[in-house]
C-alpha cells in the first residue's frame, strides 16, 4: 500500500461521498431535476403554480 494508493482510495471515497450527499440534499430541498438549469422556474414541482 503505497502513498498513491491510499490517496486514491480516499479520493474516490470523498468524491463519491460528496456527490451522493449533494444529490441527497437537493432531494431534501425538493429539487427534483438536479443540474437542470430551469430547476428554479420549472412548474413541475411548483406548488403555487398549479395549472388546470
Amino acid at each position: 500500500m503505497n502513498a498513491a494508493t491510499v490517496i486514491a482510495v480516499i479520493a474516490i471515497a470523498a468524491i463519491l461521498f460528496f456527490a451522493a450527499r449533494y444529490l441527497y440534499k437537493e432531494k431534501k430541498k425538493g429539487n427534483h431535476c438536479v443540474g437542470c438549469p430551469y430547476a428554479g422556474s420549472c412548474t413541475k414541482h411548483n406548488n403555487t403554480g398549479g395549472c388546470s
Binding site: I12, I15, L16, A19, A20, Y22, L23, V34, G35, C36, P37, A39
Partner: peptide, 15 residues
C-alpha cells in the same frame, strides 16, 4: 448546471 450534473449524477453512474 451541466457541470453539476456531470459531477454528481453522471459521476455516480459511471462509477
Amino acid at each position: 448546471a451541466y457541470i453539476v450534473k456531470a459531477a454528481t449524477i453522471i459521476l455516480i453512474c459511471n462509477t
